[in-house]
Design a protein around this nucleic acid. Sequence first.
DNA 1: TTTGGAAATGTTATAGCATTACATGACTTG
DNA 2: CAAGTCATGTAATGCTATAACATTTCCAAA
Lengths: 131, 131
Amino acid sequence: MIDTTDLTRNQDLVFKALVDAAVPLSAYTILDRLRDSGLRAPLQVYRALNTLCEKGLVHRLESLNAFVACARPDCHRHETVAFAICDQCNQVSEFSDTEVEARLDAWVRGREFRAERTTIEIRGTCKGCAG
Amino acid sequence: MIDTTDLTRNQDLVFKALVDAAVPLSAYTILDRLRDSGLRAPLQVYRALNTLCEKGLVHRLESLNAFVACARPDCHRHETVAFAICDQCNQVSEFSDTEVEARLDAWVRGREFRAERTTIEIRGTCKGCAG
DNA sequence: TTTGGAAATGTTATAGCATTACATGACTTG
DNA sequence: CAAGTCATGTAATGCTATAACATTTCCAAA
Ligand SMILES: [Zn+2]
Ligand SMILES: [Zn+2]
Ligand SMILES: [Zn+2]
Ligand SMILES: [Zn+2]
């Protein structure tokens, strides 16, 4: 289980901003929303985001250059998490698939490639927006 | 099979720069390497890259903000291509796995999500660099 | 041959994302 | 207290990508 009690002030502000948004936010959007709370510079946000990502409370979405609060407290049981991202409403669905993990792992092991971090992002349109 | 004969001047320059490099390059690195060939502005490179990506001759690597020449002339038979990227030597291995595609497709179809573009990128260390 | 449309190009400026460098402060531990 | 570590503050800079607009090239239809 993930611990949210030992966050510093800035980390807590950034995390709460992402949880409130419920959709991915860029670092600069987070900064704008936290200026009234005292944040002044991008680096304050990026530092908090780095720590939050390391703790697994936040995920970086590479194809958006944005960050989203983790939707699944147990996602750390998986090495790899996948994201389905709706380009209309920005909703993100986070999931994992052990078979996908196994196939990718088999591929890299077969080539003696040491995997550190895997990104899986599906961009498209969600059910509600396609309707 | 992919056709490389109908490229415009700028597209051809950018494509050859990527083929020569054999590793991913950022748009600005490409621009630097092509200044002697007449390119002056980022947009000239980005426009060529967009076209090359649409044709499937080039892939964008989201986790690097960089571009790489397609290594597999037949990769278009697959909706989805995966990349193993060595952070030491920058070598990229491009592959596809129909089972991975099928599992991801099953997930999105189950939620009536319409997938447009899927990114799979594995960052790590290749066999040669791990020693 | 002319003409009109589509696509590519050239150029400047600007917007958006991320890090470097350095100084300061808070807190712990011996 | 002194030293070490971690978080913070601030300014400056660098990297990535697009907007806006003018011009040129090419090709096909009239
Ligand atoms: Zn998660
Ligand atoms: Zn949607
Ligand atoms: Zn390819
Ligand atoms: Zn390597």
